[in-house]
Amino acid sequence: MIRIRSPQDLGAGLLFLAIGGAGVLIGQDLAFGTARRMGPGFFPTIISALIMLIGVLVALRGIAIAGPPLERTPVRPLVMVLLSVLALGLLLTEIGLFPAALVFVLVAAHARRRPAIVETLVFGLLMTAAIVALFIFGLSKPLPLFGGA
């Protein structure tokens, strides 16, 4: 049984391997050409191969040499923050800046445990007003306030 001495390095190594591997694989569809006449696949394939090489080295190092353990990864902030941003971005054009911003503030507030709902709502309204003022009136950006674009 192989003991993992540095999970951070092993993780990084495997991630690099995957990225480099994908780069080489997708690059197969592109003409490689020769050094004299580089095809569109030439440079990216070489770069991807190098990423894979480093991936192998780092992964091996993760097995051989001790390193720091993985940090603990609380799910709530990660998921709620990403979700709120995604929601705001996708709803912006569907239901308008104002309601989208409210949805966003409510979801983002849950990145913390037990947010105060009233405070969040009041703050959300204030912030929405500020952003609306800045972008629609200040910079005349074509963002719909209510409703789809």
């Binding site: 941003v85 995604l86 971005g89 911003a101 966003f104 990145a111 912030m127 952003i131 950006k141 963002l143």
Partner: peptide, 27 residues
């Protein structure tokens, strides 16, 4: 502070590109 930062990021990306796809890329 943090919702303000997040909102600035979204609106900043959207205001420049006007494409929801870019916000997905940001995520």
């Amino acid at each position: 502070m943090y919702p303000t930062i997040l909102m600035l990021c979204v609106v900043g990306v959207y205001a420049t590109t006007a494409e929801p796809f870019q916000i997905v890329m940001m995520v």
